[in-house]
Design a protein around this nucleic acid. Structure first.
Length: 270
DNA sequence: AAGGTAGTCAACCGCGGATCG
DNA sequence: TCGATCCGCGGTTGACTACCT
C-alpha cells in the first residue's frame, strides 16, 4: 500500500493475532497491569508485535469488560444521538457505551447505522432529513453557504466546538424533531451534551466498573500498582469472563479464533 | 459447482496531543 | 521553552465470509 509501517523494526509480526499471542498478551497484562509502557509490552510478553498492535488488540478484543455481538437497538439509538452531537468522535461515543470499543462502534456505524439512517431518509452526516439537506444544498448552490456540512466538519475537527458552534444540527435518528435548528449555547442546556461533557469521573454507573487494568499507561505510578494486590483486578465484575476464558484451556489453540465463543462467554448484552 | 460481488470487521497507518527530560 | 517519545484517535485497508448469478 506504500505506507510506512508503524514499527520500523524488522521482524515485527503483523496481521491477525493467533490464540497463542492472545494468551501471551493476556497473561502479561493481567500479571503486570500498569507496570510498563505499551512499547515495552511485546518484548516483555515475548511477542513479535509492536506495542501499538498490542494495545489495539487489548483494547479492541481482549479486554475483559468487552461486550461482543451486535449493538442493541438502545445502543444504536444512543450512538445515533451521540453522533449527532459529536460527529465522528468514536472514542467519546464509545466512552458512553460500556463494553463497546470505538472501533466496534465505528464499524457498526459504517456498516449498519449509516444505511439505516439513509433508508429512513436521514442524512447520516448532518442528521438532517435528506429532503431538508437537498433544500439546503439548493440554497447553497444559489450562493448561500451550507451551514450543515460546515458545522459538522468543524465539530469533527475541533472538540471544543461542541457547545459553542453557532448552528448545530439537532438530534435525529429516533428523534425526528430536528428541523428546529440551533441557537447559540443550545448545547449548554442539552442534558445529553452536559452528560457528554462531564468528566470521566462523573460517568454514570450503568455497567461501568473501575478498571485498573485499563489504566495501562506510562503515567501509572509503578509503586502504586505494585501495592495493588494482584487479584484485585478480578474482584470487580469481570471475573466470570476470565473464568470462562481459562476454562477453554491452555491447549485449546482455537481459543478466541471464534468470536462467538467470546460472545457466549461474556454472556452480557443490553 | 464455480466465480463474482457485497458486507463485515479486525488490524494497520499516520497524525495530533500529552507528557517528560 | 523545546525537542523527543509515547499514546490515543479516526480513517482506511484487506482478509474473510455470505450471498448472488
Amino acid at each position: 500500500m506504500g505506507r510506512q509501517p508503524c514499527c520500523d523494526k524488522l521482524g515485527v509480526k503483523r496481521g491477525p493475532w493467533t490464540a497463542e499471542e492472545d494468551r501471551k498478551l493476556m497473561a502479561f497484562i493481567l500479571g503486570n497491569a500498569g507496570r510498563c509502557c505499551w512499547r515495552a509490552v511485546p518484548k516483555l510478553a515475548g511477542l513479535l508485535r509492536c506495542g501499538k498492535s498490542c494495545r489495539l488488540r487489548w483494547t479492541n478484543y481482549l479486554r475483559p469488560d468487552l461486550k461482543r455481538g451486535l449493538l442493541t437497538d438502545d445502543e444504536e439509538r444512543l450512538v445515533v444521538d451521540l453522533h449527532a452531537k459529536l460527529g465522528n468522535r468514536w472514542s467519546k461515543i464509545a466512552a458512553k457505551l460500556p463494553g463497546r470499543t470505538d472501533n466496534e462502534i465505528k464499524n457498526h456505524w459504517n456498516t449498519h447505522i449509516k444505511k439505516k439512517l439513509i433508508k429512513m431518509g436521514i442524512d447520516p452526516i448532518t442528521h438532517e432529513p435528506l429532503e431538508v439537506r437537498k433544500q439546503i444544498e439548493c440554497k447553497s448552490n444559489n450562493g448561500e453557504k451550507s451551514q450543515q456540512q460546515d458545522t459538522h466538519i468543524n465539530r469533527d475537527k475541533d472538540a471544543s466546538s461542541v457547545g459553542s458552534e453557532s448552528s448545530p444540527p439537532e438530534l435525529s435518528g429516533a428523534n425526528t424533531d430536528n428541523t428546529t435548528g440551533g441557537t447559540n449555547g443550545i448545547h449548554d442546556q442539552d442534558p445529553l451534551v452536559k452528560w457528554l461533557l462531564e468528566d470521566e469521573d462523573d460517568l454514570p454507573t450503568i455497567g461501568i466498573v473501575e478498571e485498573p487494568w485499563l489504566d495501562f499507561t506510562v503515567e501509572n505510578d509503578v509503586d502504586k500498582f505494585n501495592s495493588i494486590p494482584s487479584a484485585m483486578s478480578w474482584d470487580i465484575g469481570a471475573t466470570d469472563w476470565l473464568l470462562d476464558y481459562q476454562d477453554f484451556g491452555a491447549g485449546d489453540s482455537s481459543l478466541l479464533d471464534d468470536a462467538s465463543m467470546v460472545d457466549s462467554s461474556s454472556g452480557s448484552n443490553l
